[in-house]
């Protein structure tokens, strides 16, 4: 498992809450730090790709295991 600086549990939340909570959580990090997000919303896979593309924060990892999704977002410098 990769290192991360902060974790956000967005399991059970539906669109658009995982993205909104992630945005808030990123605000508490400095550039280059990594946020790990746990989610169960299947739509979040594409949503985090789009979020990364639009905001410039880098999506380092996007994984699925047993109906749970894990994302690693690196805050842009």
């Amino acid at each position: 498992m990769s290192d991360f600086d902060k974790e956000l549990d967005a399991r059970g939340l539906n669109c658009p809450l995982p993205i909104l909570r992630a945005k808030k959580a990123l605000n508490d990090l400095s550039g280059g730090q990594v946020l790990r997000i746990l989610a169960t919303d299947p739509g979040s896979v594409k949503d985090f790709q789009a979020f990364a593309k639009q905001t410039g924060n880098e999506l380092l990892e996007s994984n699925e295991a047993e109906g749970e999704f894990t994302f690693l977002l690196k805050k842009k410098a």
């Binding site: 669109c15 658009p16 993205i19 909104l20 992630a22 789009a50 979020f51 639009q54 905001t55």
Partner: peptide, 11 residues
Amino acid sequence: FILASTAAALD
């Protein structure tokens, strides 16, 4: 409200 809050999160 969904589109506005999400768009705001996307800067």
